[in-house]
Structures are given as C-alpha cells and as structure tokens.
Design a binder for these strands. Structure first.
Lengths: 200, 200, 200, 200
DNA sequence: CATGAATGAGCTTTCATTCAT
DNA sequence: CATGAATGAAAGCTCATTCAT
C-alpha cells in the first residue's frame, strides 16, 4: 500500500506472516466458505508453501479459531459489561448499539459465521459462538416476557446480523444502512421491553 | 403418494428410490451441510451403491436442485399470486402469513439454505433462491419508503427465516412459536407500511 | 473375455485385483517394511491408481490385516487342535513340527512380522499375533517347570521364527535347512519336557 | 559420571545436550520404532527446537548411528577378543556369557535393533550390525559342523536376543531370567560343540 | 434398475532438512 | 549454542464421477 513499503520486494517478510495468513484466510473463507477454501489456495495467494501455514498454525481449523478469538474479543467485553448492568431498557439499547458497532468492526468474520453455520456448528468456534449468543440473549431476553416479546428481542439480534449481509445489494452509504438497521433493532428491543414492562 | 402404496414395506422399493434419495440427502444436507455430506454417505444409508445415485441424478448438485424445485413450488406460487395483487398492507400481511406457512412446510430445506449460504451461493440454487427473495422483496418493500422502513420489511422476512432455526432451543410448542414469530413479522411489515404511508 | 486366460493384455483384470494388491503389498512390506512402503508404490507396481486400493480396502492397515487373517488361519487351526490335546511330549513335538510347516507356508508374512515388530505392535495385528503366540506358549510351556525349561520352550518357538530369516544367508537347500531348524526346536522342547518330567 | 556434576539440576544443561538427545531418541526409537519417531517429538520432549538437533547431528540417521557406535563398543571388544582365542568350547561359552552381559548393558538399543530389523537393514547401522553378527558367528559356528549344529549355535545367539524381549511378560526377577536364558544358550552352544567334536 | 471397479484431482497433514541470525 | 521461519516432497485418504455389464 502507499507510503513506507519496503523496496526490497516481498523478500524479507518480517514477522507478519502469521497475520497475513489470518487476513487472507478470512477473506477467502468469507468469500467461498470454509470447506471450499483449501490451504493450497491460501498459501499460493501468500506466495509461501502450504507447509509454512503449518509452521504458524497446527491445523486448518486453528487458523479459523485464531481469527475468531482475535476478532470476537470486543463482543466478549461487551457481554461482560452487560452482565454486570441492571437489565433495564437503557442497558439493552446500549448493548444493541455497541453490538452493532462491534459487528461492523468485524464484518467479514460475521458474514462468514452467518453464511457457514452448518460448517461452523461442527467446528470448535461453533460452541464458542453459541456461548456468546447465549450471553447476549440472557441480557436482552426477559424469560418471563411473553413469547412474542422474546421473539422480538431475538429478532433484534438477527436483524443486526442479517442486516450486514442482506443490505449488501441495497444502494446507499454503508454507515447510513448500519444506522437504519440499528434503529430497527433498537425499536424491536424497545417494544419488547415496554410491552413486557407494561404487563407486570 | 397417491394410488398403489405397496404393502411390502420398503422391501421391493419399486419406483420410489428417487424419492428416497431426496429424503435422505436433504436430511443429511440439513444436518451436516452440503460439502460435508458425501454421496458415499447417502448411498450407504440407503443401502444402494453410489452408482445408483447416478442413475437417478446426473450430479450431486442435481440432487439438491431437484429437492429445491419440488419444495419451493408453493413459494413460487405465492410470489406469483402476490405479484398480481395491489401492494396494500393487507396483501403484505397475507404474504407474510402464507410465507410463514410455506417455510414451516419445508423447514429442513430452509434450514439448509440458511445454514449453507456460502455454499449455496456458488450453486445453481443460489440464484434461484435469490430470485425468489427478490420477488418477495419487490412485493413487500416499497422502494420509496425511507431506509428504516425498508429494513423493517426485510427484517420481517429474516425474522421468519431465523425464527425456524433460533427457536429450536427455546421451550414451547412449535406451532405457538411459529405464531409468535409470525406476529412479530406481521408487526414489522405493518409498521413499515404505516409509517411509509403516513409519510406520503 | 475369450476362453480362459485373456490374451487382450492386462486390460480386463477380472476379479483378482484384491488378491493382487495383497500379493504385491506383502512382497513390499516384507522387503522394505510397512512404513516405508507407500500406497503409491503398491499402486504403481499394479498399474492402478491409489484410489483403486481404497476401493478394495478401507485403510493401509486393513490391507495388512487382510493378509494376516488369510495366512494365519492354519496356525489358528493348529492352536485350536493343540488346545484340545493332552499336554504330552508327543503333542508338543507335533505342534512344533506342524508350526514349522505353517511358517514355511507363510514365510514372507512371518519374516515381515519378525522384522517389523515395533510397527506391528501398534497395529491391529499386533495383538492378534500376540494372542496366537500366547496360545502356543500355553500349550508348550509348563508353568510349573523351572525357569530354564520355560526358556527352552520359548526358545524353541524362537528358533523356528529366526531360522526362517537368519538362514537366508547360509548355503544349502531350503528344505534341508528347515529340517535342521525343526530338529533343534524339537530337541529343545523335548529337553524342556523331560527335565520337567524327571523333576516331579 | 565422574568429576563436575552440576548441582543445578538440568537447568543449565551445559554441554550435555548431545547426550540428552541420544537418550531421548533411543527411548523413543525403542518404544515406537524409528520411522514413527519424528524429530519434532524428540525436540519437544527435550524442550529445544528441531534445529537444535541439527546443530548436534547432521541427520536423523546420524543420531541413531551415534547411539549405536557408543553402545556397541563392548561387543566389538568382545569380538576382537574372541577372534584371537582358539575356538574351543570354553571360548564359546565365555563369548556367550559376556555377550549376554553386553546385551543386558545396552538392552534398549538391542530391543530396538530386534524390533526394527526391516528399517535398520536400510540404514547404515544395518551393515554395521550384520558385521558384528558375522563376527560372532565366525567364532561360534564351526563351518564343518553339520547343519543341525550350526543351527544350534545360531539359535544360541537368537535365544539371547529374543530372551531379552520375550521374557518381558514372564514373571520373575530380571537377573534370574537373564541367567536362565544364558543357561539355555550355553547349553545350545555346548551341545553344538560336543556333537560336532564327537563326530570328527 | 442398479452394481462393481476404477479414476483423477484434490485434500489436510507430516516429515526431514536448511539457513540466516 | 541455538532459534525462527520456511521449504519440497511425500504421505494417507476422500470425493464426485464414469462406464461396461
């Protein structure tokens, strides 16, 4: 890219190979799916040998896990934070807002997770991800609310997830779209809360 | 289905092999994903040889396509119907209601589609499915509505899709859950319409 | 096609491929060891693809197991027979005699077993073989005999095994050598028995 | 051994790394076989890198050769001694006795040699070992004796080798077992000699 | 209506080895 | 005295697919 590129070709690739593997892998995983992306493909694009990948990661799955662990940290922090707050409407709205941001920050990973659920389910990150979702659910969904409101809360989460993907082919500025999605999600969570609250 | 059901169990599997292949394939595709399901696995479970599958279908993909075509017909009909109606709120609500039913009637296929998007995208059914979605979108989403309401409509569709999957691990009668999901979706589409209408 | 043997090259290789795989595999296993013999090597020598091997056998190990099972049957029968006899000297001598014949009949396999013990130990046939050995031991070795005589009996077995291999590079007619080895083994088992008997 | 034993445990592993590599390698080779033991495994167990092994040895094979050379010296000395003695019965008995001791002193190596013959044959130590065996044979076996007696002598050697391994699963004090094996071997060599002698 | 036998391409993974630092 | 990073070769194995019978 611009600026301080080393003039010495790509010969001495410093210590960044591990990172480069993760970047390329995520790109390809998101584009083609996990199974259809071979290590050959990744290594060719990096101009290293397949064996080099194995110097940095023990298995193909480990590449994915490492990406996941790195990118999912903000969400873990968010859940941790949410867990310690009172489950008020304000907390929920804040969670939704911050979750929307977190998703935007790791869009390719979440697109991958969304589009490869069947695969991911069998992988180690499957349960990791499920745990995170359960964490959010625990905060957002009031187990005593009626079923419709529970669905509303879950739908808020899903709207955020799907929004990232299914608005790809809608015209408009990405940030505007994200805001629109966020508003719908916030609305859903708000309605879920009010009606639940008004009931008791 | 109709007519001459054989009393001899599945012993003499007359002409139903094609159907049985589709059933088993869909089951496995939904359970494990498309790539991870091999023709060997399918044929073993049916106690026929792999070559037998090729007597009935030209390729692995064709098995999937045939399942898709069979199960997606009701939705095609629905879209066809919707296209000829005025795009009133009532039409939209009716579409949502009938779509919810159609989804319930072909749950495993849609679960599969949802969980294997990355794979499906590269397959022939990818574009077929996308076309259907676009059809629904054309009916439900008013291109002049503001972005938030567009998202609301799309979110309604998504809520239906996701509902099938993510309510798996919520307690409660499946039909109740479907109704709850339907209500939220209807609500979303209604709000999208009203606000859009009130604007103009 | 025509007549008995086909004159048409090796094109149509009837139904004997499975057998041919076993033959070539045993030859190479015995010559180079199990680990150093690759499936590529086997398939190349047979002028088929590696995948063809996998049509006939599920794994590399299974090739070996199948060879073992076929060739070890006579020894199993022998043990079965021995088990039902009284443990007299005559029985023991007969066992030794017939075991010597059995070994000669499956020489490459036993050479392989002898020379690849470390490998075989981790494989499925390891325990199979050990069981056979224990069976013979149970018949030949009197647990009340003194240690030296126990060693003599075991040494008789070993002499038979080793004879096959270490006489390779001694001049002389193979059948003569086998006879000589048999005589030493018989002698050992006889001395073990007598001295044990004279004790009581 | 003598002199500067370090009191600091194995913390500062001074100059003993070479030795430690040999120890661990022999342990693993004997346990799992040569091919199945990877340099990665050895280096991990030593908590050094694979590259460190290459600082001390040029190849994997060289590690084995170095172990062999160190441990086989007593046997070389024994053969050297035997070669200069008259080939009397007493010499032979003495050879057997001292060989038994030498084997006990390098048990893991010989267990390895015994259990990895197929591998060892292709390696440099294969011919080294064969040469030693030939040396012993030259001393113990009278080429003019009849075949049976030749077998007896060779069987004596084999009894010593195999005894170490196949008595593993017999109860009893190791030293007692060694003595018993030695007695049988001595007996074999004695009978070989007498009968041969009595003949002429 | 189906099978038996086989293929070609590709996969993930492991290994011994090298070399600049 | 040793490591970090990488390679080239090969291994065992699986897959969708083909075709004569």
């Amino acid at each position: 890219m611009g600026g301080t590129m080393d003039g010495t070709k790509q010969q001495r690739r410093r210590g960044n190979t591990r990172q480069r593997i993760q970047d390329v892998a995520l790109e390809l995983f998101a584009e083609q799916g996990y199974e259809k992306t071979s290590l050959r493909e990744i290594s060719e694009r990096l101009e290293v040998t397949k064996a080099a990948l194995y110097y940095h990661f023990k298995t193909k799955e480990e590449i994915l896990v490492s990406i996941f662990e790195d990118l999912v940290r903000p969400i873990e922090d968010l859940i941790e934070w949410g867990r310690r707050q009172p489950h008020t409407l304000e907390t929920k709205q804040e969670i939704i807002r911050r979750y929307s941001e977190a998703l935007a920050g790791a869009a390719p990973l979440f697109r991958f997770m969304q589009e490869n659920q069947a695969t991911v389910r069998e992988l180690r990150i499957g349960s990791m991800f499920k745990d995170r979702m359960m964490g959010l659910r625990y905060i957002l969904v009031d187990p005593d609310a009626d079923l419709v409101d529970q669905v509303r809360s879950i739908s808020a989460l899903f709207t955020l997830h799907a929004g990232m993907i299914f608005l790809h082919d809608v015209e408009g500025d990405p940030e505007d779209k994200r805001k629109a999605v966020l508003e719908v999600a916030t609305d859903l969570v708000t309605r879920a809360h009010h009606q639940g609250a008004g009931d008791s």
